[in-house]
Computed example of a mutant assay.
Amino acid sequence: MASDRSGTRVDSASAPNIVRPALDDVDRTLLRALAADARMPNNALAQRAGVAPSTCLGRVRALRERGVIRGYHADVDPAALGRPIQAMISVRLQSHARGHIPDFMARIAELPEVLNVFFLGGADDFYVHIAATSTENLRDFVVINLSGNADVALTETNLIFDHIRAGLGHPAH
Rank of each mutant, 00 (worst) to 15 (best):
173 H>G: 14
41 P>N: 04
108 I>S: 03
98 R>D: 09
133 T>H: 03
92 R>C: 01
7 G>I: 07
69 I>M: 03
56 C>I: 02
167 G>C: 03
44 A>H: 10
162 D>G: 08
61 R>G: 03
157 T>Q: 10
132 A>K: 00
59 R>P: 00
142 V>Y: 00
147 S>A: 13
101 I>G: 06
80 A>V: 12
29 T>V: 11
35 A>K: 04
133 T>N: 01
72 Y>T: 15
115 L>I: 09
127 Y>D: 00
164 I>E: 14
164 I>W: 09
92 R>N: 03
163 H>M: 12
136 E>T: 10
46 A>M: 11
34 L>C: 11
134 S>L: 08
65 E>H: 04
169 G>L: 05
131 A>S: 12
34 L>D: 06
24 D>G: 07
67 G>Y: 01
150 A>I: 08
169 G>I: 05
145 N>Y: 04
107 R>C: 07
84 P>R: 11
151 D>W: 13
137 N>L: 09
88 M>Y: 00
70 R>M: 14
129 H>Y: 10
76 V>Q: 03
54 S>L: 08
54 S>W: 04
1 M>Y: 07
95 S>N: 01
112 P>C: 15
158 N>R: 15
69 I>V: 15
151 D>R: 05
46 A>H: 05
167 G>D: 04
64 R>D: 06
42 N>G: 14
102 P>F: 13
171 P>I: 06
18 I>K: 09
98 R>E: 11
144 I>E: 09
148 G>F: 05
112 P>F: 12
173 H>T: 14
55 T>R: 06
113 E>N: 11
30 L>K: 02
51 V>K: 05
10 V>L: 15
82 G>L: 08
121 G>L: 15
165 R>I: 01
130 I>P: 00
121 G>Q: 09
99 G>K: 13
30 L>A: 12
145 N>E: 13
39 R>V: 05
